[in-house]
């Protein structure tokens, strides 16, 4: 379980002024929950994710994971970035085996496990390719497999499908849901797409900017496993989307 208590983040601007990026965030994530964060640009949603990852320190407040405060990055929380962040000098297989090798597994053991994951993301034919030889969607599949390889309890996904075309995006959303149904990891998913958030999540956190804060948390009470083709005709699904779209529109008019 992840508990976020009175979390704030201040930055120094170039002019030397204090900028409050996040103000008094309070949130609890249950184990195995799929939660999306959505909000206008500048609301600090990625910053929040990076603080949970332990990549940047909090200014005030704390983050507890199973009761222990976060002090830095760790293999219990696996990030997936929009930019893929794959190691260009390693092959697909070596990328996926990376975390396992760090944990002291033998090369053979790590690669055997990497092959299982590669099969799971449907790229077994590309084991010996370099990342630059793959399309954007394939790169993100590799990145997800690399993170799943060291078996984190939580996945921290920072607009993971934001750089992909619509078609690839739909495929990856479906596959991600399938993997999640199977492994039931806690997922924190930052996105710009309301539709994506509603389709994937148990709860959608709507954030507002200036300073970044949680405006509302909306439970998505749709049955699982979800089929996108069925949801399209589900009135509740459409209502969720319209409701959240409306809230974000209102923030943006307010800001402008």
């Amino acid at each position: 379980m992840i508990a976020i208590e009175h979390l704030s983040k201040r930055f120094k601007t170039a002019a030397g002024k204090d900028h409050l990026a996040l103000s008094d965030i309070n949130l609890e994530l249950k184990s195995g929950e799929f939660v999306s964060i959505i909000g206008p640009s500048g609301c600090g949603k990625s910053t929040l994710l990076y603080m949970i990852g332990g990549f940047i320190p909090a200014s005030e407040g704390r983050i507890l994971i199973d009761g222990k405060p976060v002090a830095g990055p760790g293999p219990d929380r696996g990030p997936v970035f929009q930019e893929f962040a794959l190691f260009a000098w390693k092959t697909v297989l070596q990328n996926i085996a990376y975390g396992l090798r760090l944990q002291g597994k033998s090369k053979a053991e790590a690669e055997a496990r990497a092959r299982v994951l590669l099969k799971m993301v449907g790229l077994e034919r590309f084991a010996n390719f370099y990342p630059k030889e793959l399309s954007g969607g394939m790169k993100q599949r590799v990145a997800i497999a690399r993170t799943l390889a060291y078996d984190p309890q939580t996945l921290l996904m920072d607009e993971p499908f934001g750089a992909l075309d619509a078609h690839t995006r739909t495929h990856l959303q479906r596959d991600l849901l399938q993997i999640w149904e199977e492994h039931r990891k806690t997922v924190l998913f930052v996105t710009h797409s309301v539709e994506e958030a509603v389709y994937l999540s148990d709860r959608v956190i709507v954030m507002a900017a200036g300073p970044g804060r949680i405006d509302r948390i909306i439970p998505i009470e749709l049955d699982r496993p979800r089929q996108r083709s069925e949801l399209m005709f589900d009135r509740r699904y459409q209502e969720y989307i319209t409701q959240i779209e409306g809230m974000i529109d209102a923030f943006e008019t307010e800001a402008a």
């Binding site: 990852g53 990549f55 830095g72 760790g74 293999p75 970035f81 962040a85 760090l102 990145a143």
Partner: peptide
Amino acid sequence: KLVWAARSAG
């Protein structure tokens, strides 16, 4: 993010 990904992996 390359460094972050590695740090998370341990």
